[in-house]
Design a protein around this nucleic acid. Structure first.
Length: 576
DNA sequence: AAATCCCCCAACCGCAGACAT
DNA sequence: CATGTCTGCGGTTGGGGGATT
């Protein structure tokens, strides 16, 4: 028996040891720092996987499963510690409504978060709501299993009836959570099931604005019928059930709110009609098939950004936006100039305090966030209210920015069209669409929609050239009829596998969620106007993170010296 | 001050799928 | 094809600690 650290520590007063069948009594219970170090070193040297070999090769008296769990939940890089932000909470609820108890898949949408964290959060929340007699989902979120009941589907673990029962009870007499065993993905609304369908959001005043989530990925899966709306009392709870009990003083705020000016301007009545199929959450896998190469532009997914609305934004009204002329003609290019030298538009983990407090965009949908400072929030970063997300509303939320360098030529070629289309499935395209919809109800926009093309940043060429200090986005006209991404070629298993295997890693790599800094880099705030499409540079940051090393080693002075990162998407493979 | 409640968190367990032999 | 192993996932448990009674 190989003893680690000279002894096997007694931990937690629970059963601490188990035999691995080979006579070695494996340790159980809490891990020590020394054990963590051993495991970390081993994984760094040998990579993940083959967990059972850890014990053999390191003498760590832990079973493979325990090692894997420890690594995944505590030791692996880019883990994000701390309380869930309001955005994350909101997303979890939405994801749960969509997926049921698919914690791993939910975690894939929450970079840096583990399935265990999410599961713990949800179960805590479940208990709390159970105790309070509150519904599990806010009124504006209809669980997918209510929309698409599949009575023949059952949880994989049939023996966990009690938990099921709880779920069922709190899902308002619904069927079991949507955890189809046959399909790992939420049963998507057929792509062309109702291509002309639209859904409308109504808001009569600010207090009910929390009901509106036109940009959220799941809410409009099916429009709420009047009866559904009436069956769920609209007034927002004073203390949101979505809020963390430890952040009760800062209840989760609406995902989608309106500036008072806007509300006034619209006579307290705002309707939105989105002439498009309801959004779905998961991207297909075809273009997620290849992990990106770290040496290349780590752009894997605009949709990931669009479904990762979890960062607080600056305590300041950070509005150094990329402004895109809405009525830009074909292939117009908008250029972002960093108007504030204190901020590198693509740096990782920008200090919120360094965000400029410059101009405020005349936005219609400017995210209204309130800087809530919670003592329990993530590294004391302010916890802001929900901001709208920009998920793709298209069925295949394809990773637009896959590193197609890893594709074979054939794959590249075969995927060219798909890539071209996929961009229309992306965040910015959604922004456009929603801008259209939101901008005065101009439902007569031509069928030609704009395709966004973009170029990746060449952040390695960070040579302080002023010309590099831009982010270019161009639009092309394209036929909306092409905006249908076929899923015929998609393989569900591949999709599942890829999501499981790549998303978390990829996102984690894309977004440096290092907890050491405590800074959150991808604060999102997006603004839509009639005449302008404005993107928060933070969002762009999350799209185009600069080289982390460079960003981390960059001094403030250097940052002040006009960090310039070329973010032209024109060079992005497979996009243009 | 003690008891209780509750939340958070870490870790374990069993199961099932993927894969190799 | 059967079996074994590895891995991942979801459910559950139990301790620590803060808040409340």
């Amino acid at each position: 028996m190989i003893m680690y650290g000279g002894e096997i520590e007694k931990a937690g007063g629970s059963a601490n040891h188990m035999s691995n069948g080979g006579g070695v009594v494996l340790k159980k219970g809490p891990w020590t720092a020394a054990e963590d170090e051993i495991l970390s070193v081993y994984v760094r040297e040998n990579g993940e996987g083959n967990w059972n070999a850890v014990q053999k090769n390191t003498g760590l008296v832990r079973c493979g499963k325990s090692c894997r769990l420890r690594w995944a939940n505590h030791l692996r890089p880019n883990l994000r510690k701390g309380s869930f932000t309001g955005d994350e909470e909101r997303l979890i609820i939405q994801l749960h409504a969509q997926l049921g108890n698919k914690w791993a898949r939910m975690a894939a949408q929450l970079p840096g978060r583990t399935d265990n964290e999410i599961k713990n959060y949800w179960n805590t929340r479940l208990k709390r709501l159970q105790r309070q007699g509150l519904p599990l989902y806010p009124p504006d979120i209809i669980p997918n299993h209510q929309l698409h009941p599949h009575p023949h589907h059952h949880q994989q673990n049939h023996h966990h009836q009690q938990h099921q029962h709880q779920q069922m009870y709190f899902q308002q007499q619904s069927s079991q959570p949507n955890t189809p065993s046959s399909s790992p993905l939420p049963s998507p609304t057929p792509i062309n099931a109702n291509p002309s369908s639209s859904f409308t959001f109504h808001s009569t005043n600010a207090s009910t604005a929390y009901l509106l989530h036109p940009l959220s990925p799941h809410t409009p899966t099916t429009p709420q019928t009047p009866s559904q709306l009436s069956s769920t009392p609209p007034p927002p709870p004073l203390s949101s059930p979505l809020s963390s009990p430890r952040n009760n003083q800062y209840p989760t705020l609406p995902l989608f709110t309106f500036p008072s000016s806007q509300i006034n301007n619209n006579n307290n009545n705002t309707n939105f009609t989105f002439p498009r199929p309801p959004p779905l959450l998961q991207p297909p896998s075809s273009l997620l098939a290849k992990r990106y190469n770290n040496s290349n532009t780590p752009l894997n997914c605009i949709n990931r950004v669009s479904t990762a609305p979890f960062s607080p934004v600056s305590r300041d009204s950070y509005t150094s936006f990329l402004t895109l002329p809405y009525s830009s003609p074909t292939a117009q290019t908008a250029t972002y100039h960093n108007t504030n030298n204190n901020y590198s538009s693509f740096s990782l983990n920008p200090s919120p305090s360094s965000y400029p407090t410059t101009t405020s965009s005349p936005s219609f949908l400017h995210s209204q966030y309130t800087p809530n400072y919670s003592s329990t929030s993530f590294h004391n970063n302010p916890v802001y209210s929900m901001k709208q997300e920009f998920p793709s509303n298209q069925i295949p939320q394809i990773g637009v920015f896959n590193n197609v360098n890893n594709f074979t030529d054939n794959e590249k070629q075969n995927n060219t069209n798909l890539h071209r289309r996929s961009i229309s499935c992306s965040l910015l395209e959604d922004v456009l669409v929603e801008a259209e919809a939101l901008a005065g109800g101009d439902g007569d926009r031509p069928s030609k929609r704009r395709q966004l093309t973009a170029s990746p940043p060449n952040h390695h060429n960070n040579n302080n050239n002023d010309n590099d200090n831009f982010f270019s986005v161009s639009f092309e006209q394209y036929d909306s009829s092409e905006n249908i991404c076929s899923l015929q070629d998609l393989k569900p298993k591949e999709e599942e596998s890829l999501q499981m295997n790549t998303m978390q890693d990829d996102i984690a790599k894309l977004l440096d969620w290092g907890s050491d800094s405590g800074e959150i880099s991808n604060g999102q705030s997006s603004v839509l106007t009639d005449d302008n499409l404005v993107l928060d540079v933070h969002q762009l940051n999350s799209l185009f993170p600069a080289d982390s090393t460079a960003a981390e080693t960059r001094t403030n002075d250097e940052q002040n010296n006009n960090d310039k990162i070329n973010c032209s998407w024109d060079n992005l493979h497979g996009v243009s």
